[in-house]
Simulated scan of single mutants.
Amino acid sequence: MTFVAEKNPEIMKNLSKTLLSAALIAFTGTTAFAQDKNTGVIDYEVNAKMPSRGGGGGDEEAEDRVITLNQHFYFSSGKGKLETDRPDFAGGGGRGGNRPQGAPDGPPPGGGDGQGPRQGGGFRGRGPRMFGMFGNAYVDLANKKYIQIFTKPSDSTKTYFAEEDFTAPKDVKLTDKTKKIAGYNCKKATLTLRDETYTVWYTQELPFSYSPVNGLLPEGSGVVLAAESSNRSFTAKKVDLKPVDAAKISLPANAEKVSEEQLRDIRREEMQKFRGRQNGN
């Protein structure tokens, strides 16, 4: 075969074309996978000011502490999940050290299975709570809904979830300014959310819409990669396009759907039980 090919230029030409075509197919397949923007993870760094306790000794005007957290948003096939690395308050985690005012002593009720955009496990104090601040939370990207989820610490077999629609911000001012964040071209806008002004950078180069805080999408579509107010900020450090296991971003099989009001009542009841145990009742 080798001898015939060497003596026949036409066979050599066809063989070369075949090998080249195979190489191009392999390369195209690899490139197509690398360019799949529907699955991957976005790593955010979050900074939030915590009100100072002003603990006596003339230190009433102590500066607010800043807590730094890392969040990871996994997305695939129209679903998403936000995971938050819990800060080590006991070890002085974040900036400023010490347990911040408003952070619960011990794990919050339902800890680990996630908190909603407003109800759960976030910082008390100024402005909206960051979505999933101390736990995990889910997003229905296809239908533009945040999903609050809560597992009873008194009965781990009881898990509940409630849906919250994406909400529109107020006083949106679009600009012509752009910059790259984590490799993506972003537009700049300013807007108001609960009387707090944010500067937002968002990209429309990803095929879904998402923001770590509900109400920060300036045009109703796009992915917010950075936002900053006077009290908090978050910035995407990396967007890694890669396969994500469907099980990772799926709600627990035993989760029961309830209304937002019902979920608040369930959380409130469990928090009261938690505080009672803390007080020795």
Results as ranks from 00 to 15, higher is better:
G40Q: 08
Y44N: 08
V46G: 01
V46R: 02
N47K: 11
M50S: 14
M50K: 09
P51Y: 06
P51E: 13
P51K: 13
R53E: 15
G54D: 15
G55P: 04
G57Y: 11
G57M: 08
G58C: 10
D59L: 13
E60P: 10
E60T: 15
E61P: 06
E63M: 12
R65I: 12
V66M: 10
I67H: 03
I67D: 04
I67N: 03
Q71S: 04
H72R: 14
F73V: 06
F73I: 03
Y74C: 06
F75C: 07
G78K: 11
G78F: 13
G78V: 13
K79N: 14
G80H: 05
G80F: 07
G80Q: 10
K81I: 02
K81A: 03
K81S: 01
L82P: 00
T84Y: 01
D85S: 08
F89H: 04
G91D: 11
G92Q: 11
G92V: 09
G92N: 10
G93C: 10
G94L: 12
G94Q: 08
G96N: 14
G96C: 09
G96L: 09
G96V: 08
G97H: 09
P100V: 10
G102A: 14
A103Q: 06
A103D: 06
P104N: 14
G106I: 05
G106M: 08
P107Y: 12
P107T: 11
P107Q: 14
P108C: 13
P108F: 14
P109E: 06
G112V: 07
G112P: 06
D113M: 14
D113N: 15
G114D: 02
Q115C: 09
G116L: 02
Q119I: 07
G120M: 11
F123L: 05
R124N: 05
R124F: 07
G127H: 00
P128T: 01
P128D: 00
R129N: 03
M130T: 02
M130S: 01
G135T: 04
G135K: 04
N136L: 04
A137R: 03
A137T: 12
Y138R: 07
D140I: 13
D140G: 14
N143M: 08
K144N: 15
K145P: 09
K145T: 08
Y146I: 01
I147Q: 07
Q148T: 15
Q148F: 09
I149Q: 05
F150T: 05
P153D: 12
S154W: 05
S156D: 04
S156N: 07
T157N: 14
T159A: 12
A162P: 03
E163Q: 14
E164D: 09
T167Y: 00
T167S: 03
T167F: 01
A168R: 09
P169K: 00
P169F: 00
P169G: 00
D171T: 00
